[in-house]
Amino acid sequence: MGLIYALFIQGLQMVLVLVLAPGLLGFTRKVRARLHRRQGPPIVQPYRDLYRLVHKEVVLADNATWLFRNAPYLIFATTWVAAALVPTFASGLHFSWAADLIAITALLGSARFFLALAGMDIGTAFGGIGSSREMLFSTLAEPAMIMLFFTVSLVAGSTQLSAVATFMVTHATLRVSLGLALIGLIIVALTENARIPVDNPATHLELTMVHEAMVLEYSGRHLAVIELAAALKLLLYISIIACIFVPWGMAGVNDDPLAMLIGGATYLVKLGVFAFMMVMFETAIAKMRVFRVPEFVGGALMLGLLGVLLLFVSRSF
């Protein structure tokens, strides 16, 4: 019985992230529009878009290969698996030991690898420019993420997100290193999700786009799957930050359904608050030049390294 319950909760988590992800995107768009004093599309618009896209016919370029056709599903699958392993409303899920923070980073790296290859498959100038820049950003964002996760795991004594969350609830303190990690993770999250100071998700101006340039040739259900993966990725980053820095309210794995409900409600609140803060930040800041981005992300790497260094020197930082 306990096993079935645990499996059910794990399955619920997988479905939950999938269902919530487009809604989160819709919410950010709505808030953004309101901040611009526009009415904005309804929150359910991303769901409608996805529904419309999956029912459309796919138009493939003449020389598109099997890699191009399969990449969206692989990108989606790796992102989904990563997102399913991050504790959202409950920690210590049944399969949470399958991958730790480093593995989650690497899973996202797999998704990026396929996305960049898909961008190069047709052999257009735009696809290449997107892939090239995406890989440039990743060369700094990925080590930054690893170092920031190092900081967190050195404090918590574990690289398992569930264990980190439990530690943070029981031993919550103010730490210099955790402060550094929070700022760094926000920078990485903005970069990896192609948010404003790095990339503008709402534009098709060729010189400013990175993510959009890579998926330019996609249409129909392929595009839908990629968009869904991008939404999942945003949800995943917010969930990670929430799970590490504000783990309160999360249910344990064996708690009763009521605790799970409370966990779910607090999770929704956390998502809303973080998304709102992100949009506020985006609205207040201008997009950077491409070659200013490495300095921005490099800052996150420095923060991670500084945090790890401080913790290596003295455990009380």
């Binding site: 016919e57 138009v59 370029a61 003449d62 020389n63 599903y73 735009f126 098709h204 060729e206 799957v225």
Partner: peptide, 26 residues
């Protein structure tokens, strides 16, 4: 499993049609 499920669900419930054309390239 996840990629297989995604392919199956989309192909069975939505659309599996495709057509070839020249690259769009913006």
């Amino acid at each position: 499993m996840a990629s297989w499920a995604a392919i199956r669900v989309i192909h069975n419930l939505a659309s599996r049609a495709h057509r070839r054309g020249p690259a769009w390239d913006c």
